[in-house]
Design a protein around this nucleic acid. Sequence first.
DNA 1: TGCCTGATTGCCT
DNA 2: GGCAATCAGGCAA
Length: 192
Amino acid sequence: MTLPQSFYRRSALVVARDLLGTLLVHRTSAGTVVGRIVETEAYLGVKDPASHAYRGQTNRNRAMFGPPGRAYIYFTYGMHYCFNIVCRDHGIAAAVLIRALEPVRGLPLMHKRRRVNDVHQLTNGPAKLVSAMGITKEYYDQPVYRGPLTVQRPLGDRPKHISRGPRIGISRGQQFPYRFWLTDNSSVSQAR
DNA sequence: TGCCTGATTGCCT
DNA sequence: GGCAATCAGGCAA
């Protein structure tokens, strides 16, 4: 079942935790790839110093201020893209960064896109998974509750062991434990 | 206009 | 563990 738009209308902290264990699905003419979300980070609005929305709305971050359930994709370090899902209602900035997946389906296509042999290196980082999934900037501000790129609720139980701690790669707001991951999952991103 | 930084990654020592 | 790659956004001047 595809998660409905209303799923994302809640606090990014709640959505970040609830996304763990769900499936990110991308269907293209090249094939279908599926990854299980195992690590997320919540970014809040204008009060969160680590958020792109901290200094208010700009052309780059405008999707974060838009309706919930759409993709906020940004280009960084001159070469990488990261994928977020927008939360809260139109006018309130919030998003969840998808930091890591566990490869589920379409592994040959993921290997082709990523050019690595180790399955653990396929999707264990925010820019790595964007590459492996074939997500492009064309999805900027596009919904993830319908269309080629969606999030699905899997069959079976929800994950039981969830960990929480500071976000990674930020220089401000490290005191907030807004990162969530499946405890002991081998696809969670590597700390550096 | 110019400078600095970044929600990262991969390669090098 | 260190650092280059590589560029758009944001801000100061």
